[in-house]
Design a protein around this nucleic acid. Sequence first.
DNA 1: AACAGCGTTCCGTCTGACGGAACGCGCGTG
DNA 2: CACGCGCGTTCCGTCAGACGGAACGCTGTT
Lengths: 259, 259
Amino acid sequence: MGERTAPAVESVDRAIRMLEVLGRHGSGASLDELATSLSLPKSSLHRTLAALRERGFATQREDGRYLLGPELLRIAFDFYGRLDVRVLLRPTLERLRSALNETIHLGVLDGPDVVYVDKLEPTQPIALSSKVGGRNPAHCTAVGKALLAWTYPTSERLLTWAAEHAPLAHPTARTIDRPDALAREMARIRTDGFAKDMEESESGVRCVAAPVFFGADGPVAAISISAPKERLPAARMREVVGSLLREIAATPGAARAVG
Amino acid sequence: MGERTAPAVESVDRAIRMLEVLGRHGSGASLDELATSLSLPKSSLHRTLAALRERGFATQREDGRYLLGPELLRIAFDFYGRLDVRVLLRPTLERLRSALNETIHLGVLDGPDVVYVDKLEPTQPIALSSKVGGRNPAHCTAVGKALLAWTYPTSERLLTWAAEHAPLAHPTARTIDRPDALAREMARIRTDGFAKDMEESESGVRCVAAPVFFGADGPVAAISISAPKERLPAARMREVVGSLLREIAATPGAARAVG
DNA sequence: AACAGCGTTCCGTCTGACGGAACGCGCGTG
DNA sequence: CACGCGCGTTCCGTCAGACGGAACGCTGTT
């Protein structure tokens, strides 16, 4: 992140920078707020803002202040609604499988559960009962915990979720089903950036998982890697987490936006 | 909507048109899908897409297809989150009050209720008990019905809402509290584009209301005009609805997006 | 091997973006 | 009431930089 090389199309680059500034002003930015924060002459700003206005990417209040336009919001919400996570993440999942040769899951949150929307199996056949379309309680799987940790980013909101879906299932002895313990686990996951499942949903199976965001506040889905615990001792687990986070970071748009 | 006049900045205009096309493709658009649907040479597309990519407004999958980028989503969600409806709509509310000299409310939905976030009173003092920050059951007020009709745009989803918040209050004899009747009322509101309250929350008081969208799928807020029923006979009601819809249409970004 | 279908790069032309300067309006001030 | 200030807006001569046709390179196909 140092000096930026010359933009491919200067006027487009400027327009985008304007949109970024406009986005930070929920009740409008004045022309020379824009001028100072972008160090551009007012005439240039004005011309570009006119172009943005024509397409509804900016609007102007009657007092002159400029706002982000409804068309930009419409496009974003619309695209977000039709985002096909499975198609988008297939190549990433495949790269993970060929790098690790383990079972890869892609899951989304649905109330108390995770729903698996995609699954890739390793070449070495392994008994894992999950299916695309299948469900598991969210709080005892790595995918589920990764999703919960960022969907309910405060302990308070997580506890509300837990209360709504109480009592939480406890399929194995290691399942974390006490709400307060779960809230602490989520805090840990948020600082680490990934979730683990240490035989919490199925005895003998460990998983790691991390969320994908695609620009949204909350995660759109989470990717997990599962294996029998003999194949996932602490050292390999660290390695696998590394691959997972690296592949997500390398997938266009998937990683968490910086803010 | 006929021929468009020359855009203020051609390259910016093109970039926006690209974003609109990209937004329609949830799993990516290829370079010459873009080329044909925009009738632009590939080299120009390529250059502009590079500019969009540099700022995260577009991304490219490893197979070459282009996607809307996470930064555009981030900006949109972020702006949407900090949208200050009160500031944005103040001028509109003031114009309505000076045109009609009646009580104007601005309300948002919160579970079973509407919460009033702004209120303007007419010069002729009138006994209306509502306060900024105050609440009313959504299903018996015009603001609430306008919000419900588009927040839960199908009968099925409305009935779910009704079931979650049953039993619905019935403050007056005219309150519509039967879920099926309410669902029919919502359908009527959606086709009309506005909601009425014929003494359904307070005896002797009529209101009309219409939603504001600001680019989102669902309404961000709704504006209502309330008056004693003697001041709102059928004829004046039509006139008032006309003013309301016209003012909303004239407020940058507020009206429902076409697409 | 030749081909077709893609994304990508090059580079000479000339359009159209650039920004300094001037304008017009509304507002508060001396 | 004249004045000046702080806005957004418009104008226009200059020349940077956007434009697009053509050629390239890669991959998978026949």
